[in-house]
């Protein structure tokens, strides 16, 4: 993709008006990048600064009064650590299962077989019509899945959208000649899938890992509906509880605002605010690491899958 991305301009000399355009373009992009990066950077800065420095507005571009108070509180927060562990378990097992199931089905859907149209319709209908939250909740409850680890791992296990992307990728990137050759050599669908298709689909497998992994890591709503025990909660749901205190803080804000003394907040509340910055950093770092490490697969895999899908 990158090759065609560039070749369009190489052969042609740039004129003055084009240079003006290019530099204006560059300028605009720098502004956009700053707008995207700054809020995230600020959260990191604030998480390393003292409460006083944050709220007086001195810590903006670089940590002021460097402190780790917030992180100390985060790593002493038993529920948060427990939920962090839970989230890792749910994400790793759930994502692995999802990717396996999706790749298997995606391969099957690239071959011709009796009933393929029906199966396709079966999946596509499921993408556009569901029973809705309440029937889903009641059925899963009656299946005995309420408040279990199982539901955190297998709910939303197959995303039809991802299935279609993977199918498109396999059918465009794995040539049919390979299938015919393998079949002549006596392979069956299983051997062909495991020995030929999977090794040739590394890109889309990486993309699937990111899609499913990030979705599962970021999901707070499932646990909100299906989990009652605190010890089973995933990170995002606990994070929501901690940040929900920000809502309480906001009513406090309006209360303070009413008395015209915005600065008169107790130390405990200030510290709780710093902890929130730290929580955000701690919760987002794994996703960013995953994204950056998988990045080289990314642009290509996503485009191929989405273009024709």
């Amino acid at each position: 993709m990158e090759a065609t991305f560039q070749s369009s301009k190489k052969n042609v000399a740039r004129t003055t008006s084009d240079k003006v355009f290019d530099f204006a373009n560059l300028f605009v992009w720098i502004v956009i990048l700053l707008l995207i990066v700054f809020p995230l950077w600020y959260i990191v800065v604030a998480s390393f600064s003292s409460a006083e420095a944050i709220f007086s507005g001195r810590a903006i571009l670089w940590p002021v009064d460097f402190s780790l108070i917030g992180y100390e509180a985060v790593f002493q927060h038993v529920l948060l650590l427990r939920s962090y562990f839970n989230s890792i378990v749910y994400t790793v097992t759930g994502t692995t299962l999802s990717v396996m199931v999706t790749m298997m089905a995606a391969y099957a859907l690239t071959r011709k077989f009796k009933g393929k149209k029906t199966v396709n319709l079966y999946f596509i209908f499921a993408m556009f019509f569901t029973g809705g939250l309440i029937p889903q909740f009641l059925m899963n409850q009656s299946l005995g899945l309420y408040n279990t680890i199982t539901i955190m791992i297998i709910i939303n296990c197959v995303s039809v959208w991802n299935l279609m992307i993977a199918r498109t990728y396999i059918s465009t990137s794995v040539p049919d000649e390979l299938y015919e050759a393998a079949m002549l050599d006596g392979a069956n669908h299983f051997t062909y899938f495991f020995k030929v298709v999977l090794p040739l689909s590394k890109t889309i497998i990486a993309v699937m890992f990111i899609y499913y992994g990030v979705a599962r890591w970021n999901d707070y709503f499932t646990a909100l509906v299906y989990i009652r025990d605190e010890s089973l909660l995933p990170l995002q749901t606990v994070l929501r509880q901690i940040i929900a205190m920000a809502q309480a803080g906001s009513s406090l804000d309006s209360f303070m605002g009413f008395f015209g003394d915005g600065r008169a907040i107790s130390d405990a509340i200030r510290r709780a605010e710093v902890v929130k910055y730290c929580c955000i950093v701690v919760a987002t770092v794994p996703v960013i690491i995953l994204y950056v490490s998988m990045q080289r697969f990314f642009v290509q895999g996503v485009t191929v899958g989405s273009l024709k899908g």
Binding site: P39, L239, M256, G262, Y277, I280
Partner: peptide
């Protein structure tokens, strides 16, 4: 994640 995004909003937009 939506939780983190909304958390950032609450923190950056807090009136105090």
């Amino acid at each position: 994640s939506p939780v983190v995004l909304v958390g950032i909003l609450f923190l950056l937009l807090s009136p105090t």
